[in-house]
Amino acid sequence: MIFKCRNCGGNVVYSPEKHKMFCPFCESEESQEVQISSGAISICPDCGGEVPVKEHTAAIQCPYCSNYLILDERVEGRYLPKMMIPFQIGKETCKQMLRDKFRKKVFAPTDFLSEVRLNSMEGDYVPFWFYDYDVSADYQGEGTKVRSWTSGNMRYTETSYYDVRRNVDVSFRNIPVDASVQMPDDVMDLMEPYDYGQLMDFDPKYMSGFCAEKYNMEAGAVENRAKQKMTEDTVTLVREQVSGYSNVRQKRNDIQVRGAWQYYGLLPVWKYLYQYNNVEYPFYVNGQTGKIVGTVPISTKKVLAYACTLWGCLTVLVGCVSVWALLCV
């Protein structure tokens, strides 16, 4: 489908800044009407150009007419997301955030933050599985309390041992795990957390103006990551319930899952791929919170130039200080 403008026929896109559908051609707002495509998914229904649709593409920009296409059959049926967070940060804001964050990285290549390079940034809706768990944790440990006092010239230390038991129910909601082979897991974990206050039911209009993938990893295949997060968090939360001891030795901590649910949804990510010396340096920006994940490439020439200049300046300054010291005595 394509969102077309009723007034001018242009492609209406979702504007994160305005939080509305917006036609960049006639600047009208909420003027969209849906144009359903009927032909092959790799053919642009607007201009007829061939679109490089990949196996998991759910939304893409036509390279010929620049319209954003949403592939109906990849957001329907089993691929219909239950929920999503629309982009809250627009491209210009995202560019500025990258500039602000990396401005002090003096050894970054000169054009790393150039307008031309940053314009290549792309907004992607990444498929995620969200897991809900209701768990019970049965904890037993041995706690020690230590008390010391002095009497005369003797020092006494009393160690008391306690049998510590806790039974805690914890409800986890929406533990996210990315369902994309293309997206690196560690990076997607670092993008968290998203603010679920803005989580809403899926609406394809929010995809207009962005690219997207359908899930390409089944819920069962990635659930281990969610379970691992849940287990680690449960252990921490149960330990928080045990206090007042000098030391606690855990004897057992049985975590039982009483209920588990999973949902499919989309989360917004800005992606900036920077190529330097034939190596790709990807940067990901949380499209809602603006959290940036990525490491800047280092220009060896800059490192040498800057470090040597600093060395030279300091040498001259220390030399001058030495001369002053000699002059003053």
Binding site: V168, V170, S171, R173, P193, K229, M230, Q241
Partner: peptide
């Protein structure tokens, strides 16, 4: 990711 029900001792 604690839900509205939270942690119940």
């Amino acid at each position: 990711y604690i839900g509205r029900e939270g942690v119940n001792l």
